[in-house]
Design a protein around this nucleic acid. Sequence first.
DNA 1: CGCGACGTTGATTTGCCTCAACGATTGTGG
DNA 2: CCACAATCGTTGAGGCAAATCAACGTCGCG
Lengths: 179, 179
Amino acid sequence: MSDEDFTTGTNLLIPKKLRKRQYLLQAGDVCRWVAFVSRGCLRQYTFDDEGNEHIQAFAIEGGWIADAASYHAHEPATSNIDALEDSELLLIDRATQEKLSVMVPPWGLFFKRELENAYTSALVRVSELASLTAEDRYMRFLKKYPGLFQRIPLHQIASYLGMTPQSLSRIRRELADRK
Amino acid sequence: MSDEDFTTGTNLLIPKKLRKRQYLLQAGDVCRWVAFVSRGCLRQYTFDDEGNEHIQAFAIEGGWIADAASYHAHEPATSNIDALEDSELLLIDRATQEKLSVMVPPWGLFFKRELENAYTSALVRVSELASLTAEDRYMRFLKKYPGLFQRIPLHQIASYLGMTPQSLSRIRRELADRK
DNA sequence: CGCGACGTTGATTTGCCTCAACGATTGTGG
DNA sequence: CCACAATCGTTGAGGCAAATCAACGTCGCG
C-alpha cells in the first residue's frame, strides 16, 4: 500500500479515549464500527441465562475488536465491550469502511484479510475448546498471548478459556509445582 | 443479482461427483477451492496427537465446505474432507473466485457475506462450547440442523459436539425417557 | 456367511464445578 | 488519611458430569 493510500485511510479513523471500566458497546446497541486498539486493553463479553459472565475476546495494542455479528448484520449486539485499562482507540464505521474499500482497493484487501484471519482464529478456538483439557487450553493461551496474563485478572482469563477461576488457580499451581 | 450476472458465475463452477468415503481434501494438500454441496453430505475433520478424530464441520445440500485456513493462506491443510454419502459438488477455485468478485461485484458481495456468516457461526460455536453442557450442545444441534442426526452416524455428531459417543448415547436416552 | 461399523449399556474413574472460607490488595467515601 | 468494602487469588471439601474401560447385540455389506 502506498503512503498516500495509507494516509487516505488513517485520516478516516476516529480517535476515541476510554477510561478503565467504561463501555464501548452495550448489548442491545448496534455495533456500527470496528475498533483498533492503539493503547490499552478491552474485553468483549456476554451474560448467560443464569447471569454468568462469559468473556469472548480480549484486545490489546495492535488488535481489533467489535461485535462482529452485530456489525455485519446491522442487528443489536448481544455482547458488551468495555475497557480493562485506560485505552486509546481508532474507530472506523461501517459505511466508511465500505467506501474506503471501494475507493482504495488495498484497504479493501486489508479488511478482507483481517476478516479471514479472525475467522481462522475462531476456528482454531473451536477445535481447542472441543478437544483440549482445561490445562492444555491455558498453556495454549500462554503461548499465544505471552504477557497477557500479567495484565488481565485471572478470573477473566478463566472465563475466556471456559473454566472457573478456581480451576485456573489450581492449574497454575500444578504447573508451578511441576517445574 | 441479475440473471446474467448469476449465470456468469455459475458457468465458472466445476462440477464434481464424490463417492461415499472418498476424499475431497487430505491434510497436507493445499485447499485451492471452496465446495458447494448440491447433493449429499461431507465432513471435515482432523486428528489429534493421540490419533483421535475430531470433526470440525458437516456440509449438506446448500452448504459450503473447505479448509478455510488453507484456502485463505495458501498453506497446506491441517484437515481432511470426505464424503459421508455419494455427493455432487460445485467447486470454485480461489483465482476464479477473486476474478469473479472483481468482474461481477454482486458475486464479490455474495462471497463476502458468506465469509461473514461463516465467521459469525464460528463465534456462536465458540461460545456454545465454552459455556454449555454436553446435553445443551446436543439440543442446540438438533434445533440448528433438524434432520441431520438421521443422516449422520451418531458417533460423528458426538465428535463434532466435543463429547464421546457413549455420552451422546446416554444423553439421547435421557431425553427420550424424560418425554 | 463373517466381519466391521454402529449404537447401547454398565462399572468405574476423573476432571472440573460448586460451595465455602480465607488473606492480600486495591480503592473509595467519610 | 484511615476504615471499610470490594476485588482478586487461593485453598479445601464434596459432588457431579462426562470420560474411560469393557462388553454386547444389531445391522449392513463385501
